[in-house]
């Protein structure tokens, strides 16, 4: 369970988050939606212990990510960041292998290799395992970084816009894969999405943010109403249903 209490964050003198208080339950997929600049990425960084909030507290499964040893933090929560830096000549397999660092600290064993194999297979990277990441397309690279996050083998996976640069097929495959992980692997996944329909189709819970505050938080079915979406995005939406799934369309 992630418990956030009265979290404030400022970048320099610009306040980004204004008193976020919420609880995210274990299990399932929680989607963060909201317009650009709503503070979604910042919230993920604060939860994973990478950006220190100016006030307020964060607890993940009871631990404080800012005081717990770095290694323990990295074995509790893994974060996929937007546009991470590239290391030239790094092979896909080696990149995914870095996800095992919190477990082996430089001395990988057979269980690390097995976990890397599983991650490569789970994200359809087997054929690319020997390629350098600087020769990959944006979408392939994105999948490699997601596989690294998966290999970290943490109960919590936080993904910041993982659908960036993915074509429709891989976007769908990724969401289906995350859905399966949340069911079979009992991973708890928090994901920033700009595609509201991806959230509508796959997320169990949705947190809607705007201007550094949480506007609404509920199960997907209950939250996705034209009224809420209009308030969040300042744009009118229509809610349709297609084969039993909600679909939202900006009017």
């Amino acid at each position: 369970m992630i418990e956030i209490a009265d979290l404030h964050y400022s970048a320099g003198h610009t306040p980004i988050l204004h008193g976020i208080t919420t609880t995210l339950e274990r299990g399932g997929i929680t989607a963060l939606i909201g317009p650009n600049g709503a503070g979604k990425s910042t919230l993920l960084h604060c939860i994973s212990g990478l950006e220190k909030p100016s006030s307020g507290s964060v607890r993940i499964d009871g631990i404080d990510p800012f005081t717990v040893p770095h290694r323990q933090r990295a074995r509790t929560v893994a974060l996929l960041q937007q546009s991470p830096a590239l290391v030239s000549r790094l092979k896909v397999r080696e990149l995914v292998g870095f996800g095992r660092w919190p477990h082996h600290q430089g001395r990988p064993g057979p269980e690390d290799a097995a976990q890397i194999d599983r991650a490569l297979t789970a994200f359809a990277l087997d054929d690319l395992a020997g390629r350098s990441i600087d020769t990959l397309s944006g979408g392939q690279r994105q999948r490699a970084f997601i596989a690294m996050t998966y290999a970290q083998d943490t109960p919590w996976m936080l993904l910041d816009e993982p659908l960036n640069a993915l074509d429709p097929r891989h976007a769908r495959d990724l969401m289906a894969r995350l859905h399966a992980l949340s069911r079979d692997d009992k991973r708890s996944i928090v994901i920033v999405l700009h595609d509201i329909n991806a959230a509508a189709g796959w997320a169990d819970h949705i947190v809607a943010m705007k201007d550094g505050r949480i506007l609404a938080q509920d199960s997907s079915a209950a939250l996705l109403t034209p009224e809420v979406l209009r308030e969040v995005f300042d744009t009118p939406f229509d809610l349709l249903h297609h084969k039993g799934r909600p679909v939202v369309v900006a009017r």
């Binding site: 990478l50 770095h70 933090r73 990295a74 893994a78 996800g99 660092w101 600290q105």
Partner: peptide, 18 residues
């Protein structure tokens, strides 16, 4: 090995618990 992780950039390296 820690330097290899650091080469991924400060943010990613910290995410991995370095």
């Amino acid at each position: 090995p820690a330097l290899d992780v650091a080469a991924l950039g400060r943010s990613t390296a910290r995410g991995l618990g370095l």
